[in-house]
Design a protein around this nucleic acid. Sequence first.
DNA 1: ACACAATACTTGACAAAGGCAAGTATTATG
DNA 2: CATAATACTTGCCTTTGTCAAGTATTGTGT
Lengths: 158, 158
Amino acid sequence: MPLSSIVFYLCFMKKELVNTLRDFNRFYTTVLGVVNNHILESDYSLTEARIIYEVNEQEGITARAIKEKLQIDEGYMSRMVAKLVKQGILKKNQSKEDKRIFALALTAKGRQIAADINRQSDEQVKSLVKHLDTKEREQLAGLIMQVKQLLEKGNAEK
Amino acid sequence: MPLSSIVFYLCFMKKELVNTLRDFNRFYTTVLGVVNNHILESDYSLTEARIIYEVNEQEGITARAIKEKLQIDEGYMSRMVAKLVKQGILKKNQSKEDKRIFALALTAKGRQIAADINRQSDEQVKSLVKHLDTKEREQLAGLIMQVKQLLEKGNAEK
DNA sequence: ACACAATACTTGACAAAGGCAAGTATTATG
DNA sequence: CATAATACTTGCCTTTGTCAAGTATTGTGT
């Protein structure tokens, strides 16, 4: 039985899930704050980076879909898209079947920037786990996937 | 071998830790956004709530210590403390040995509010795991403690 | 076909949140 | 004792985000 499991067990006996989760949330709020503020050392805000990421992942996605996935205010979303279009990063293709809808896509420049942001994000995350050896990294990857899976189970966040 | 482990294994084969972690970060950014915005339905902002929490945890903590732990801008921190003092939630006790330092503490009202925020946070977190059965909850608690432990290992965030 | 509701997005006005740099008061150091 | 360092404050500013009203388009019931 590895030490971490023993530690885990002893801890678990004293705490309830809610306290554990809240503790984790506080911890991770700071982790994300640090990570996100360093991505921000690029010229794009966290929200912009997230939007660019989503469009890169799913070309043709609508502003509405992103807004719902990322929980962004509708008006703010609209402005962000307008700003990114103006900067030549995004383009809007109006649907012919429904003129209210715009399919979003990255321009060539946008794809370049998405790649940059990806690289920077990778760097940030790498520095987060730089102190871990191979075995611990594998462990961590497994753990967080399981966490996500459990939390997604009923909350239907894709 | 439980299904989740199989799923985990299959997933792991295809992804590297960095991608997994980044995916988790995107996921958890939204989770925390939702949780925090609901706490925010109380009259206090996330940052205020975090400050109140820290003072409640450790009476006599300084603004500087909180600022460093939560990674808040110094000026912003100062204003937040001033605001909370004005609202009768915090009090500042100037140290006699070093007049630059103020030991922060909650007032009676402050403790009341801390309790309210705690209750609301509990509710929020509970709704996050409401779909899980007892066994899954125990699992989750164990997982997140291990995640935190691994991430804290070299980053010296207390 | 036509009023009415719903959807997708936009815009204006505003407030909250946060960052940066200079400033004050106090204490530590060579 | 001059200088640096620490703890906190303040002014100024930008970014970020919210809310409500508005436009254009499409769906729905009669």
